[in-house]
Amino acid sequence: MDVDEVVSGLILELRRGTLILLVLSQMKEPTYGYSLVKTLSDNQIPMDANTLYPLLRRLEGQGLLSSQWDTAQGKPRKYYQITENGMEVLEKTKTYWKRFSEHVDNLLEGTV
């Protein structure tokens, strides 16, 4: 058994669900893709642009984000912002995550 392979598979699974939560949490103000890549990476959550850009579009398709092109400045950029539905999803998922991670920590640290 290749331990590293199993570990990277598990980490991939763990990240997959939490990244959407993190992306939604950072979209309260209009934000463009690459600035979000920077914000996440500055906070030790590296995320490839080639994963984030299609994800933003998917979340927009689901009605959780809205978007607008800003062509006023030199470089045209597409800005995304969280919608009302997106806020509701974020709040509910965040509440669940807090409880869940607390229980996970308890079990992992053996305090239960």
């Binding site: 463009y32 893709g33 690459y34 642009a49 850009y53 579009r57 092109w69 470089k75 045209p76 597409k78």
Partner: peptide, 17 residues
């Protein structure tokens, strides 16, 4: 209808990178 929008967004991304 997505093509130009995606291309334009990726152009901006490549420029930033």
């Amino acid at each position: 209808k997505q093509r130009e929008d995606v291309a334009q967004e990726l152009r901006g991304l490549v420029d930033d990178m």
